[in-house]
Computed example of a mutant assay.
Amino acid sequence: MKKIPTNIITGFLGVGKTTTILQLLKNKPENESWAVLVNEFGEVGIDGAFLAEGGAMVKEVPGGCMCCTAGLPMSVGINALLRQKPDRLIIEPTGLGHPKKIIAILQSENYEKYIDLKATIGLVDPRNLSDEKYVSNQNFNDQLGISDVVVATKMDMVSDYDECLFDSWTKELSTQPKTTKINHGDLPQSWLDEDRTIELTIEEHHHHHAEQDIVEMALEPGQKFCRKENKGQGYVSCGWFFGAESVFDFEELFSMLSDLNAERIKAVMNTDKGCYAFNVANRVVSVNQLSIEGMESKLEVIDTQLLPWDQLETILLSLIIE
Rank of each mutant, 00 (worst) to 15 (best):
F50C: 05
F50T: 08
L51C: 05
G54M: 01
A56D: 03
V58C: 08
V58T: 03
P62E: 08
P62G: 02
P62R: 01
P62F: 07
G63M: 03
G64F: 01
G64I: 01
C65Q: 08
C65S: 07
C65P: 09
M66P: 07
M66V: 10
M66L: 14
M66Q: 07
C67D: 05
C68T: 05
T69R: 13
A70F: 13
P73M: 12
P73G: 09
M74C: 08
G77Q: 03
N79L: 07
L82M: 10
L82N: 06
L82R: 01
R83A: 15
Q84G: 11
Q84R: 15
K85V: 13
P86H: 01
P86D: 04
D87H: 15
D87I: 07
R88D: 06
I90L: 14
I91G: 00
I91Y: 01
G95N: 01
G95P: 03
L96M: 12
H98P: 04
H98V: 12
P99N: 04
K100P: 00
K100N: 10
K101G: 05
I102W: 00
I103L: 05
I105D: 03
I105S: 03
L106M: 02
Q107C: 08
Q107D: 06
Q107G: 14
E109Q: 14
E109H: 14
E109G: 02
Y111Q: 02
Y111D: 07
K113C: 06
Y114E: 14
G122F: 06
L123G: 06
V124W: 10
V124E: 02
D125N: 11
P126G: 08
N128Y: 12
L129K: 03
L129D: 04
L129N: 07
S130T: 12
S130W: 09
D131M: 13
E132T: 15
K133N: 15
K133T: 14
Y134I: 06
Y134F: 15
Q138C: 09
N139T: 13
F140L: 06
F140R: 08
N141T: 12
D142A: 15
D142M: 13
Q143L: 12
I146L: 15
S147T: 11
V149K: 00
V150Q: 07
V150A: 11
